[in-house]
Amino acid sequence: MTPDFRIGGRLTVRRLGFGAMHLPTEAGPARDGAIAVARRAVELGVTLIDTAHLYGGGANEELLAEALHPYPDDLLITTKVGVARTGPGGEWRLDARPEILRDQVDQALRRLRVERIELLQLHRIDPETPLADQLGTLRELQRAGKIGLLGLSEVTVDELARARELAEIASVQNRYSVLDREHEPVVDACASAGIAFLPWRPVAPAAAGAAEVAAVAGEVGATPAQVALAWLLARSPVVLPIPGTGRIAHLEENVAAAGLGLSAEQLGRLDALG
Rank of each mutant, 00 (worst) to 15 (best):
T2F: 00
D4R: 09
D4I: 05
R6S: 15
R10A: 14
R15P: 02
L16R: 09
G17H: 02
G17I: 11
F18I: 11
F18H: 10
A20Q: 10
L23A: 11
P24L: 05
T25M: 02
A30G: 05
A30M: 09
A30Y: 01
R31E: 06
A34P: 02
I35F: 01
A36N: 04
R39H: 06
R39A: 13
R39F: 05
A41I: 08
G45M: 07
V46L: 05
I49W: 00
D50H: 01
T51P: 00
H53R: 14
A59T: 07
E62Q: 15
L64P: 01
L64Y: 00
A65W: 04
A65Y: 02
E66G: 10
P72K: 04
D73M: 03
L75P: 07
K80C: 04
K80L: 03
V81M: 04
G82D: 04
P88R: 13
G89K: 14
G90T: 13
D95W: 03
A96R: 08
E99G: 07
E99H: 15
I100S: 01
I100R: 02
L101T: 11
V105T: 15
Q107F: 00
A108P: 05
R110P: 01
R111C: 09
R116L: 03
R116V: 14
I117M: 02
R124G: 03
D126Q: 03
E128P: 00
D133N: 07
Q134W: 11
Q134Y: 11
E140D: 15
Q142K: 14
G148A: 10
L150Q: 10
G151K: 02
G151N: 08
S153C: 15
E154H: 09
L160R: 13
R162I: 06
A163F: 06
A167K: 10
A167S: 14
S171R: 03
S171C: 11
Q173M: 13
Y176F: 15
S177N: 07
R181N: 11
H183E: 14
V187D: 05
V187W: 00
A189L: 14
A189G: 11
S192L: 14
I195W: 00
A196L: 12
P199N: 02
P199E: 03
R201E: 13
P202H: 07
P202K: 12
P202R: 09
A207P: 00
A208Q: 14
G209K: 10
A210F: 13
A211C: 05
A211S: 15
A214G: 04
A215C: 04
V216R: 03
E219K: 12
A222N: 06
P224I: 13
A225H: 12
A228I: 10
A228W: 00
L229I: 14
L229H: 07
W231T: 10
A234K: 12
R235N: 03
S236D: 12
V239M: 04
I242H: 00
T245F: 04
I248C: 04
I248P: 01
L251W: 00
L251T: 12
V255Y: 02
A256L: 08
G259W: 08
G259H: 12
G259K: 08
G259N: 10
G261C: 04
L262M: 09
S263H: 08
A264C: 06
L267D: 00
A272C: 10
A272Q: 12
L273E: 09
G274N: 09
